[in-house]
Amino acid sequence: MDMQVSFLDRLFDAGLLIETGVDGLYGRSGQFEDVIAAFERLIDKVGGADGAEAMRFPPGMNREFFETSGYMKSFPQLAGTVHSFCGSELDHMSLLKCMEVGDDWTKDQQATDIVLTPAACYPLYPTVARRGRLPKTGGLYELQSYCFRHEPSKDPARQQLFRMREYVCMGTEQHVTDFRQRWMDRGVEMMKSVGLDVTIDVANDPFFGRAGKMLANNQRDQNLKFELLIPITSTAKPTACMSFNYHQDAFGTKWGLYLEDGSTAHTACVGFGLERIALALFHTHGLDVKTWPENARAVLWG
């Protein structure tokens, strides 16, 4: 924990992250954003020729889609819902009174149709499903979004609102697992090219509760999730900066994603944790980008 707090304090002192008073909710400096922009250009360079269809969604998604996704079955503790005041003028008066005396004014807020996006690819599946069957070549999509996960922490690498860049592949089992393997190889090469020390390991999602323990064990037993790990605030427990997920036909079945021959599509996604990658670079090379190794600078800004 101490290492996490001291790195966070150094980031604040250097002005790279901006304190807001809430753990895991930070502003970013122009310099911090420039590193993220440079890394995204690197991602474009590596993956650009694959011809993915780019889509951008805001960091909120249709609550109905969120409910269908089953997120609440697995990660109820991480979800963030958007609530608003929907009352009358009289209700407004009691709301103000409640705030004035310091009571809980949020308890009468009503759920809106919007839920904060938990992963950049969540709005994609229903969007693609609406289009009908996938073409013979399958589907490849590129996304980036701020994502929300309710897990307040002093670890700068565990933020509540952060950006995820993703590639999502839909097709046959072979097609999507090849895609995943290709990005595992590319991810290692990319991180090496900017001077980051990485390992890849089998992983599991943070499923909720004891039932979640079983889901996590199942995920590991079937090698469904791998993570690319880089030491940021701990060398013993390095941070996941990329993840490589094979969903089998779970999303295909859930959303009705079909291939041209009518079979259910398999899907896989590869995610870059953009803030985490920037933090790994700052942690490894120092808080002043001008002093970063020349070859890493050349790859990012050359």
């Binding site: 089953g70 079955k73 004891r210 039932a211 323990k213 079983m214 889901l215 064990n217 199942n218 037993d221």
Partner: peptide
């Protein structure tokens, strides 16, 4: 499904008044 297997696990725990240790919480 993996989610149904979790529900089955919880139902069995209740019916037999037992708790599965972590090392047995798996597909096998």
């Amino acid at each position: 499904s993996s989610f149904a297997s979790v529900q089955l696990m919880l139902a069995i725990e209740e019916a037999f008044d037992i708790e599965f240790p972590d090392n047995l919480l798996n597909r096998k």
